[in-house]
């Protein structure tokens, strides 16, 4: 605990630099892994690498090949379908839960704890559990057969056209408590007088929420959407545990293609190109959001003088 350069006694000059020196390892590490690693992967994506890194320049052919492969275009398409349904579904369920809890219910803490716990457990556990439930050999379908309904069919997870919706449902189950927590915090910040005024005007509760309360907390919805889009773009473990990208390529997402190209097929340049595309997708979500929040803050600052 004793510091080597206690600045009340030590030389003035060195003690002045203590903060910088303590911060230096982090700065160096961040420079290497944030900037350096990004450039590194970027370079690999335009290099000659196949099974092993080969740093000679090759050009953008790997990107062209990537976008020419059906696997990748399907993965990107899946990301759009999964991403939009997942975000919308999570927001809707999260809002419903938040509004329900906002009705001055008893045992609020218990309800919240129940809805939020999926977020604490891993995507691997979540995916494994739901795979057992959705799979016709172990889950709902078998249970229905066992109960005597022999014609019952529930095999979305093995159906090429429907498997992606299984991922969506599981994703919503995992994240809606998170949306609930943030939206509820927003609801609690709404001015009570606003609601009372609407009540005096004779508006019903659902109408008040729709027309008055929820519109006032729209920045929270934007923030939650941005975070969920980030989750969606990075989705990997959940799909691995749930469907492994299948059946066929039905639930393949970009992150799975990256892993496959890099570590299963020995195409690390093309894998790096796919990783760069994930970074681009994230940037397309995050940069506008950062600009927008910066602009909002400046506006706030101007208003407060």
């Amino acid at each position: 605990m004793q510091s080597p350069n206690n600045n009340s006694t030590g030389s003035r000059k060195w003690s002045d630099l203590t903060p910088q020196m303590v911060l230096a390892p982090t700065v160096i590490a961040a420079l290497i892994w944030v900037i350096g690693f990004s450039l590194w992967t970027l370079w690999i994506s335009v290099s000659n690498s196949t099974l092993l890194p080969d740093m000679t320049y090759h050009g953008f052919e790997h990107y062209a090949k990537l976008w020419g492969s059906k696997r990748w275009t399907v993965a990107y398409q899946n990301l759009f379908i999964f991403g939009s349904l997942y975000v919308i579904g999570t927001l809707v369920v999260g809002t419903v839960l938040a509004v329900l809890i906002d009705q001055r219910v008893r045992f609020e803490g218990i309800w919240r704890t129940i809805y939020l716990y999926p977020l604490a457990i891993s995507f691997i556990v979540t995916g494994t559990v739901w795979r057992w439930i959705f799979h016709p050999n172990t889950g709902v379908e078998l249970a229905l057969h066992d109960m005597g309904w022999l014609a019952a069919k529930f095999d979305w997870i093995t159906d090429r056209d429907l498997a992606l919706y299984v991922v969506v449902i599981t994703g919503i189950w995992h994240a809606s408590g998170f949306a609930m927590a943030l939206i509820l915090a927003g609801l609690r910040s709404v001015d009570g007088d606003l609601v009372k005024a609407a009540q005096i005007d004779g508006a019903s509760m659902p109408r008040i929420y729709r027309k008055v309360v929820l519109p006032t907390i729209w920045p929270i919805f934007v923030a939650v959407t941005v975070v969920l889009l980030q989750f969606a773009i990075k989705t990997y473990d959940l799909v691995v545990a749930l469907t492994q990208g299948g059946p066929g390529v039905a639930t393949t997402v970009p992150a799975i293609v990256v892993y496959d190209l890099m570590f299963q097929r020995g195409q690390i340049a093309q894998g790096a190109a796919a990783a760069v595309m994930i970074l681009v997708a994230l940037a397309l979500v995050l940069i506008p959001y950062a600009v927008w929040t910066g602009w909002q803050k400046r506006k706030e600052g101007a208003r407060h003088g």
Binding site: V34, F37, S38, I44, I233, G271, A275, V276, L286
Partner: peptide, 20 residues
Amino acid sequence: IFGLITLGVFMPQQMTLLPW
């Protein structure tokens, strides 16, 4: 510096796999 460190929060893991 703060911006640089914070940027790490958003980095997709896939970009760092090969370098790591």
